[in-house]
Design a binder for these strands. Sequence first.
DNA 1: TCAACAATAGACCAGTCGGTCTAGTCATTC
DNA 2: GAATGACTAGACCGACTGGTCTATTGTTGA
Lengths: 178, 178
Amino acid sequence: MTTRERLISTAAQLFRAQGYHATGIAEVLAAARVPKGSLYHHFPAGKADLARAAADFIAEVMLRIVDDAFLPAPSWQHGVATFCHKLAKLFERREKASACPISALLFDGPEEADFRAHAEATFARLIAAMAAHARRLGVEDADGAAELLLVAIEGGWTLARTRRNADVLRRLASRLFP
Amino acid sequence: MTTRERLISTAAQLFRAQGYHATGIAEVLAAARVPKGSLYHHFPAGKADLARAAADFIAEVMLRIVDDAFLPAPSWQHGVATFCHKLAKLFERREKASACPISALLFDGPEEADFRAHAEATFARLIAAMAAHARRLGVEDADGAAELLLVAIEGGWTLARTRRNADVLRRLASRLFP
DNA sequence: TCAACAATAGACCAGTCGGTCTAGTCATTC
DNA sequence: GAATGACTAGACCGACTGGTCTATTGTTGA
């Protein structure tokens, strides 16, 4: 793993667990065991630059989980169930204390201006990916279903986090699209 | 409005808009036009103390919105629709840039320990209030319905915030309990 | 009128923040 | 084997953080 990759994944982890502003650069550098000079070599704009890279990194992970869940699914309902269970497992593996992978980094970022737009685009990509699967699987209102699913897992993750318990994510599937 | 009240509502507003760590005490004091001494008189434990008070303040507001929406409702569906529209209006009034009233303050709070438990209790109170209305209105799985509603508005608010548009909140009602 | 206490007021402090800067290391060139 | 440039390394800096402290003002009851 290169220095750059180590920086990104460490930052993603810490930003999600503690928030952007609550995480100091020194903390990231210590956890990744990278000196300050290297950070500003790879990310000249500093912390904000690093956060953007971390956000993109996480977005890619999420998109892959969506595809992994829906590609082999025989129906939208099956896909949703698989997706929710995958998220619950991810949550339990090592994310209990972390914010939703999608929004965490993108929110209390530096002076929203740029970051909010980035978050909006990332959400749109995720919804589009889900909607494509929904359409392929014969769902009537594919866009509506995708948006509802995103909203639910977003809120579900938040509730799971406060409870330190992923059960609510598992219950979502059968309740959303019975 | 007393100094104490002005501190709480100003803090609630700023913490929600920017996050706990991104908001400095000096900023709160300037916005509320309160000198530092007064803050530490009313909240001896400082920023964390103030955040707790602000969180409770917001929780009360949310509970009242729930009751206002469901008490006069002839059915669960009607109540949910009213509730979602009330939230959308609240969002549009002056909250476009703020995080979900419920979770915002409670999350990136100081060293989770105490704050996470507080958030969990607040969510539980809200779900309990919704579930009571659901039961009264003859919903079969009242607890499940309440939890689903909370999850949805939580995620819906987040998505609305990134889009700066409350439409997704309005669409929730008809999609959740058709 | 005067204690007594609540509340206001802001100067001040140590610690930490993100960021800059210079020096040094290493692999890859010719 | 010297030169080059990507990268590592960390000392250092001004700005700002949350919090403390002392002084002052306002209000109340005797």
